[in-house]
Design a protein around this nucleic acid. Sequence first.
DNA 1: AAGTGGTCTAGACCACGTC
DNA 2: ACGTGGTCTAGACCACTTG
Lengths: 236, 236
Amino acid sequence: MTTQQSSKIGTYRAVKAEILRRIRNRDWGPGDLLPPEVELAEDFGCARATVNRAMRELTDEGVLHRRRRAGTRVSAEPVRRARLDIALTRSEIEATGKTYGYKLLERKEENAPAWLCKSLDIASGTPIIHVSALHFAGNKPWQHELRWINLNVAPEAANETFTKTGPNEWLVSAVPFSDAAVEFSAAIANSDTAHQLKLDKGAPVFVAERTTWLHSTPITHARLSYPPDYRMRTTL
Amino acid sequence: MTTQQSSKIGTYRAVKAEILRRIRNRDWGPGDLLPPEVELAEDFGCARATVNRAMRELTDEGVLHRRRRAGTRVSAEPVRRARLDIALTRSEIEATGKTYGYKLLERKEENAPAWLCKSLDIASGTPIIHVSALHFAGNKPWQHELRWINLNVAPEAANETFTKTGPNEWLVSAVPFSDAAVEFSAAIANSDTAHQLKLDKGAPVFVAERTTWLHSTPITHARLSYPPDYRMRTTL
DNA sequence: AAGTGGTCTAGACCACGTC
DNA sequence: ACGTGGTCTAGACCACTTG
């Protein structure tokens, strides 16, 4: 929340800080064109590469907008690129100082239900493992996890019981992936989830749905429900 | 969702791709130590700086973990660093192809209520502007916005009516900030929000709460409520 | 003490897209 | 066409932290 300590001059951090200062000071307002890298390098008395790194990072953060030949401008719309650190549930809970707990509710092998085939774009009849489990922070239910694992891609999952650790912990160490997507939404807990999370009927839940692929092939899909007092925060 | 096109050899992109390939191929598994930069530079036949950039980016993305002297390892827990692009509501809606609409519901100047003072850590009696507004995608209510602006920091806000454009659009172009935080959660819509979003009583809403500061001084706080069919997605 | 990453420099060439 | 950013190189010195 506080501006980062300014560093020695001539560093890319110092350049970043100075550019940010000028933007906040409105020397450069939204949409304004900044001088080219070479010029700024002279101003700041450093190498062009240093200015480049500073500006590149500011661009990644959504503060600047760059195009070849057209130059660098202050973002007219500061698209805040927030970072979400999605950790293992265990780590997330332990980071709060609470004790992590896990309980397997159900595990079954079956063919992927129609809605899942459609959602993941896999052939009907694809064998999967379905797991329902609870994660606790201390004694309090923290997350209800519903997971589906594609056995065609991760057949080793058939040997896992998931009684002591959750599917995700096993997956991250056992199955490589190349792409992931997450969706967040709000919903009313269904009766099972409400019961497991010890919520009243009609209580809202925060829902995260994750899917991962290895080279376009779906590996696993998870629906994670959190009680309404859960807060997901951005870092940075 | 698909792996990025591999580039010419000797580029940092090629190095990134090759490192990722070896990780997915389990040449290097979770927790494993990678060779030092100098060595990889030789292997790949490129400069150390090129390898450095590749590894630095992979570290930013949460794939690798680096410490001086200790070397570089594959993350044992791939903390998925998801990126959320938080755009202006207008842009977000227009990106879906729908027409953006805006309607001011209420605007009043008053002293900050106690809960807000506590939440933002500002003195009681701080003058603020409170705005309630609706954002539409086509004819459908998309977001209910409740906003509070600190008049001590942004006194110019007193001259704004917010009848044609929302507070956020004015803020981004008029008031610089240095820090921002966002929290997401699920809640039951209160009667006002439910009415405005045309939801049934007891319907869940997806809630985003944003606060921004300029050098540790709170500028504005917003509570944004979305209907339950809203999905927030990660990019990348 | 020594090895590893972190960063800066000076120079070069390239790629893109605007003018 | 040509100015702007994008990237690579080779070398150097520094900062951290572990053995």
